[in-house]
Structure formats: structure tokens, C-alpha cells
Simulated scan of single mutants.
Amino acid sequence: MTTLTKAAGAPAPTGPDGFLSVRDLQVTFSTEDGPVKAVDGLSFDLDRGKTLGIVGESGSGKSVTNLTILGLHDPLFTSVDGEIVLDGKELITATEKEMERLRGNRMAMIFQDPLTALSPFYTIGRQIAEPFMKHTGASKKAGWQRAVDMLAKVGIPNPADRARDYPHQFSGGMRQRAMIAMALV
């Protein structure tokens, strides 16, 4: 069962540029061998327009931190404590419906292996256009044009043609750039 608690008295982001604030984040997985603490007391602030790099060895909790911020942890086997505030909105206690509105609209993750994050059954352009249409109500035509524009923005040559390609037709670096384009829309 998921344990979601809000840290008492944890400060919200300060200043006009406060965008994301994480306070005393603790993520624990329930396993057959007992609880496994994947993140233990992580705190940071990210100002709007800034970049934050989280580095560490394999298994140190980098991906778990990002997945938890996005609300993509398994609630049956995960305990999350602390506070995550995005633009003044507390995320740990947010409903799945609220998180769906934020994911792809206010926040996104570019996964380490883009081939597993992209569906082999749909074109790159469709996969970039889909979240844009969902979050903006744009037409298919406008969504497609946005996908082509974003592919150009991330440096994909011949973006109008390449948008019709499938993930297996892109190199690893191009798939990564397609995922960046998807996150940017």
C-alpha cells in the first residue's frame, strides 16, 4: 500500500523564479526481502529557466527521483515521503487526474533508452504530435506541423520527411532528440 505524506513545515519555493522544490524526498520500495530505500532525504530547488543535473552511480536513485516527481511510481509497492512542489502545486498528494494534466504539459522526462519509450507501431511525428494535441486541443494538422517544427528545432535533418519514419529508422541519437522534441511540445 502506498504511503504518501507531506513533510510538516517544509518551505515552498521562494522568489519569483521558483519552479520546482523538492524537500526531504524519501522513496522506499516494498520487496520480498523487506523495504529498500531508493531515495533518502533529497532536497533541491530548481528555478524557472534553469537546468539541474543529478549525477550519481548506477542505482543511486536518479531515475527513481524523476519518476517520483512525475508520479510514475507503482503505488502498490512504493512509499513516498517529503514534499514535491511544482509551480505552487503539491505533487505527492495530487490525484492521478491532476498528474495526467501536468505530465507532458508542465513536466516531462526524457528516458535513457528512447527506443523503449517510443512505440514501434507509430511514426515519430505522430508520437510527438499526440501529447501536443491532447494538452492543447490542437487539430491533427496543427499537431503534425508542431511535430515537424520541433524535429527541426532539435536538429533532425529533413524534418517533414523524417516525421513519417518509425523509431527503428532513427539512429540512437536521433531517437534521443525525438524524445527531447516530445518533451518540449
Rank of each mutant, 00 (worst) to 15 (best):
F29R: 02
L91H: 01
A163C: 11
G82V: 15
F29L: 08
L115E: 01
K153R: 09
Y166W: 14
L67Y: 02
A178K: 04
A147W: 00
L46I: 02
A10L: 13
D81L: 14
L115P: 01
F111I: 07
A183D: 11
R106S: 11
P131G: 01
G137D: 10
S58M: 12
L70D: 03
W144G: 03
A7T: 14
A181K: 00
H135K: 09
N158R: 15
V36P: 11
M107V: 05
P75V: 10
T5S: 15
G173D: 00
A142R: 11
P167H: 01
E96F: 04
L118Y: 03
D87H: 08
A8W: 10
E83F: 03
T28Q: 08
P13L: 04
D149P: 12
D24A: 14
I128F: 05
E96L: 06
P75W: 07
K6Y: 04
S30F: 03
N66S: 15
M107L: 04
Q145C: 09
M179L: 14
G53P: 10
K141V: 01
Q145I: 10
G173M: 00
M133K: 09
L86P: 04
D24M: 13
A38V: 01
A12K: 15
Q176G: 11
F19K: 06
V85T: 13
A38K: 03
L52E: 14
G137A: 06
H73Q: 14
D47W: 08
G41Q: 13
V39W: 00
L151G: 01
P131H: 01
D165Q: 10
M1A: 14
K6L: 09
A129V: 01
V80M: 06
G155H: 02
D74S: 12
S119P: 11
P75I: 09
A129G: 06
T78D: 05
T14M: 13
D81H: 15
S60D: 04
D40G: 13
A129Q: 00
A147K: 00
I156P: 02
P131V: 02
G53W: 09
A8Y: 12
D45F: 04
E83G: 09
A8N: 13
A147L: 09
A129W: 00
F77I: 09
G104D: 08
G49M: 07
D47G: 12
N158H: 14
P16K: 05
M109F: 07
S21K: 05
G173E: 03
A160Q: 11
V22M: 08
M99K: 05
E96H: 11
T116A: 08
E100S: 10
F19N: 04
T2K: 09
R177A: 02
G82K: 15
A94G: 03
V22Q: 03
V55I: 13
A12V: 15
D33K: 13
P157V: 09
A183Y: 07
G15K: 07
I84V: 15
E96Q: 11
S79G: 15
D40W: 10
K140A: 04
M133I: 10
K50H: 13
D113Y: 05
G18P: 14
G155F: 00
F29N: 03
A147H: 02
A7G: 10
K6A: 12
L72N: 14
V185H: 04
A138W: 03
T136V: 15
P159S: 10
A178Q: 03
V27Q: 02
R162H: 07
L42V: 10
S43V: 05
I69M: 11
M99I: 08
A108N: 08
W144P: 06
G155T: 00
D45H: 06
